[in-house]
């Protein structure tokens, strides 16, 4: 594993079924199990802060960061209210939330913390925190998803979050909450009959998962607009989760990817994926290198792949 302050990136879906009724569908149970595997992966790192970006929490006034120390509520999803209520009590890191706000202001963004009793924390964040951090072992922050933000703003937000992680000196796990394809079944279905809403959605999901499996985070980030057009119901202006994740994690493809589950949840492409900073990758495409700031000699990136016997280029790869 590469030594990076972000120990792990995790993609999780946000619908409540894997939390509330996994037994109703084998695929939902597999997603539930995958949350559990991701939880263990996080636990095996020394991450001290969970940084959550939730596409289930829209904002308008710039970017909001949850900073209420111990939010507590009995929550009901506005769509799937018949699945039951969710009692929660979480532990936030208000200081870290303030740091994200400071850092994002330094980079020209409008942002603020929100710290109010009873603030309606979104379904996705609740499901993720309940399943990935059940004992509140790691304090968290939750960052909203601005409805109007497009790529530049999202990339800068990600970099601001990265600034906060680096300045805090904390090791972080970054959790991004989003479905891949987000088209729900708009009719009642028997849970047993759940399937990805359309073949086209499924094929795009598979393409993204193929890249993620190879740790190609920056590639999926670069394809976000295409994915938005092909596989997303356009409720917001753009598909941001991979822009955010990539910009926090370094805008490259240097990760070990682990697809822990991919299943339909009420028609949506619901994947649990972990990305771990890797020493080296098998890549030979753009973004397979880090983002260099200074030229330190020939990196021989392409030669390397023509002559595999050369082995690792760690000494001379530009660091």
């Amino acid at each position: 594993m590469r030594d990076d302050n972000v120990r792990k990136g995790i993609l999780v879906p946000g619908l409540p079924h894997p939390l509330l009724c996994p037994e109703k569908n084998e695929g939902w149970q597999r997603v539930r199990d995958a949350y559990e595997k991701a939880r263990i992966e996080i636990e095996e790192t020394d991450a001290e802060i969970l940084v959550i970006y939730s596409t289930f929490w829209p904002s308008i006034l710039g970017h909001q960061v949850q900073a209420y120390p111990e939010p507590e509520w009995t929550f009901v999803d506005e769509e799937f209210h018949d699945l039951g209520s969710i009692d929660y009590k979480f532990k936030m890191d208000p200081e870290f939330a303030e740091l994200i706000v400071d850092k994002s202001k330094e980079r020209g963004l409008h942002s603020r913390t929100v710290s109010y009793y009873g603030f309606p924390i979104d379904t996705g964040s609740i499901v993720a925190l309940k399943l990935l951090n059940p004992d509140n072992r790691i304090p968290a922050v939750i960052v909203s998803s601005n409805m109007y933000a497009n790529r530049a703003e999202s990339i800068v937000l990600g970099k601001s979050i990265r600034d906060a992680i680096d300045e805090s000196g904390k090791k972080a796990a970054v959790v991004v909450i989003s479905a891949l394809s987000n088209r729900l079944h708009t009719v009642e279905i028997d849970p047993k009959d759940d399937k990805i809403h359309s073949l086209k959605d499924h094929e795009w999901n598979l393409k993204f998962l193929e890249y993620l499996e190879k740790g190609r985070l920056e590639d999926v980030s670069q394809l976000s607009r295409q994915f938005h057009n092909e596989a997303r119901v356009p409720k917001v202006v753009s598909f941001k989760p991979f822009w955010i994740m990539a910009s926090i994690m370094g805008q490259n493809n240097l990760y070990d990817g682990n697809v822990l589950a991919y299943e339909p949840v009420w028609g949506t492409g619901s994947a649990v994926v972990t990305l771990t900073p890797a020493e080296d990758t098998a890549g030979d495409l753009e973004y397979d290198e880090d983002d260099p700031e200074f030229f330190k000699g020939d990196r021989e990136v392409l030669d390397f792949y023509e002559q595999p016997s050369m082995g690792s280029l760690e000494e001379r790869d530009g660091h």
Partner: peptide, 10 residues
């Protein structure tokens, strides 16, 4: 609590 304007509406 308004999710967009929690400063105004609780």
């Amino acid at each position: 609590v308004d999710p967009i304007f929690p400063n105004l509406f609780r």
